[in-house]
Design a protein around this nucleic acid. Structure first.
Lengths: 205, 205
DNA sequence: TGTACATCAGTGAACGCGCGTTCACTGATGTAC
DNA sequence: TGTACATCAGTGAACGCGCGTTCACTGATGTAC
């Protein structure tokens, strides 16, 4: 924000921030390189000093999203310790909280259409986030009798799917689709019922 | 498909079909009016005889999708009768089957970014589909003791969310994200665990 | 059955636009001596 | 401390492109008499 002359100083991040804002406001389609560069106070051509092109910029935005996401998940996981159950539930809540708090990142990650393999850095960040969720699921699965225990990655996938579905259908204003309940409640109760189904919560809780 | 002269005969539907194919192949962004009209063997301007513009065409594609969707759901629901449980489970499976079988429609409906209120016809079709799912949920809720019965629209929303999440994350090749399990299995087991959590399936089934 | 005429589905050329990307450049910054 | 020079971040003009949309038109079809 300080006075700048010919050189911007922090253009790369400024471009990412501009992209995030635009994506948040206008959707992944509404985002254009030209407008992002204009927002950052710079010529479109300047973008190419820092990125290979449009997709590369979006990939970087998504990557930063996955980093934040992984951190949030990790934090949520830790905050639930030593209870495997509390930790697991917390990661579910963190998913929704992330989508709410960082819509631009969320869209870049899940709705922009760019592949998670667009760049190696992006793929790594994505994997890191995924690992936290799987670890939480894996801890939890210890509490299920070994003979009727589904693979940890399976119910990590279940929870991820339900969280993602709630976000897509009811939280991010899926245009015109009214949410029957607050998304937070929907996810909370949904996960609750699911965990009861696994025998991890007492039926009368 | 018959030989045609100056007049196409069934251009409106031909344009919708072309749009569906393009959307399926290239995503919602890849779809252009020009290409759709070319595919249908017609000048771009001809589109405006039948649609108000690009969005109107997509809305019609989505509307037809909701009609098919509602029919599939209705059929699945009926096929599970008289068991409320079987009917409910069938609708969940039908969701995934629909996404698999009609990707163009599915994308138009859920990923194209157009509002369900784009046209009244679209809104009506969407509501019709939703009603089937809620009816299935409502039937099912009869089997839960009244005092611990969640609102039917709530677990209809849960199942919808999980189905949608499974489709988005693991079925439609969310680029680069490997599915840990076949989506069908993922959804089947997920719904199973959920219903067990509601006390609707015997824990040892 | 034949002719005149209204209807309307499609043409084709044109438009203005903003996009992503390229290029040779220039001005600011940092470093060596 | 001062000067020469290399580095490199940004400029600005230009590009080719395909988009969605408009317009006056034309040719085919259907209908009245």
């Amino acid at each position: 924000m300080s006075k700048r002359g010919y050189h911007h100083g922090n253009l790369k991040q400024a471009l990412v921030d501009a992209a995030l804002k635009l994506i948040e406001d206008k959707g992944p389609t509404g985002f254009t390189l030209s407008e992002a560069s204009k927002t950052a106070g710079v010529t479109p051509a300047a973008v190419y000093r820092h990125f290979e092109g449009r997709n590369d910029l979006i990939a970087e935005a998504a990557r930063q999203g996955y980093e934040i996401f992984a951190e949030l998940m990790e934090f949520a996981y830790q905050s639930g310790q030593p209870s495997a159950l509390a930790a697991f539930e917390a990661t579910g809540r963190a998913y929704l909280a992330f989508a709410r708090k960082h819509p631009g990142h969320y869209i870049s990650m899940f709705e922009s259409g760019i592949s998670v393999n667009q760049t190696p850095e992006l793929a790594a960040a994505s994997k890191r986030a995924n690992d936290v969720l799987e670890k939480a699921a894996s801890d939890l699965s210890e509490h299920i009798p070994a003979d009727k225990r589904p693979p940890a990655s399976m119910f990590s996938a279940h929870i991820w799917a339900m969280s993602h579905g709630v976000v897509e259908l009811f939280a991010r204003n899926s245009p015109g689709r009214a949410s029957p309940f607050p998304p937070e409640d929907l996810l909370e109760t949904g996960i609750g019922i699911y965990l009861r189904g696994l025998g991890l919560i007492n039926p009368d809780d």
